[in-house]
Design a protein around this nucleic acid. Structure first.
Lengths: 109, 109
DNA sequence: ATTCATCCTTACAAAAGTGTGAGTACCGAA
DNA sequence: TTCGGTACTCACACTTTTGTAAGGATGAAT
């Protein structure tokens, strides 16, 4: 994180949610455990590289649990930790707000 | 915005809240009308340039209202629109989450 | 021997975001 | 005449984030 002190809770939350993908990944994992490839399809537009980078960061933050199955072809499952689930819950109202106001947001130019 | 379609409400919300400052500005304005200089002091670490850029974007998004008083020295007041206030309300739980988990977030490395 | 599927990894480059420092305009006060 | 206070504006450079394209490792199926 490289940032020691936050000026308020929102500041802290934004720090762990930074970037344009983490919210979507969190949202998708909020619906249940997902394999890497499933996640990639669930988050349209994300590249494999970005997905991995974000997942690694979220794992390091304790939001996401990663479980490897030693098979061929490989299988890796991602799921939310309790911490991640609590964040997902806290994002709920924001998602609902976006849903309600989506038309207005899309019109912004 | 240059982005036509969102994959979910969270996606849309993150688009208007993008960057590291808008959340803090919104939070600060949520407490009441502020002058430019007051905002600058309320958001420690932000540069004048960044503050203006963010305020202009938020004004364009319809989140913030800007009122100029033609005086010397100049006076400009910023306040939330209803739209901004509704977003601020939706951010409440996220801020509370950050508040509760701040110690853990600060420890992330 | 070749292909296939999955989950990555690497090197490179482009784009977005952020910071710095200077300068402007106004008028009253010293 | 110079200074102070407020709210900007501009040019530039730097940092972070994001994207692109290619390749690797494995073993079963063809």
């Amino acid at each position: 994180m490289a940032k020691r002190t936050f000026i308020c809770g929102l500041d802290a939350a934004i720090t762990v949610m930074g970037g344009k993908w983490k919210g979507l990944i969190l949202f998708s994992l909020g619906e249940g455990t997902r394999r890497f490839g499933e996640l990639r399809r669930a988050v349209p537009g994300i590249s494999e590289r970005m997905l991995i980078l974000q997942l690694r960061e979220m794992e390091a933050s304790g939001l996401v649990h990663r479980e490897v199955f030693h098979q061929v072809p490989p299988k890796v499952e991602y799921s939310l930790t309790e911490f991640g689930a609590s964040l997902n819950a806290a994002m709920g109202p924001l998602g609902a707000w976006g849903e309600e106001n989506m038309a207005r947001i899309e019109a912004i130019p």
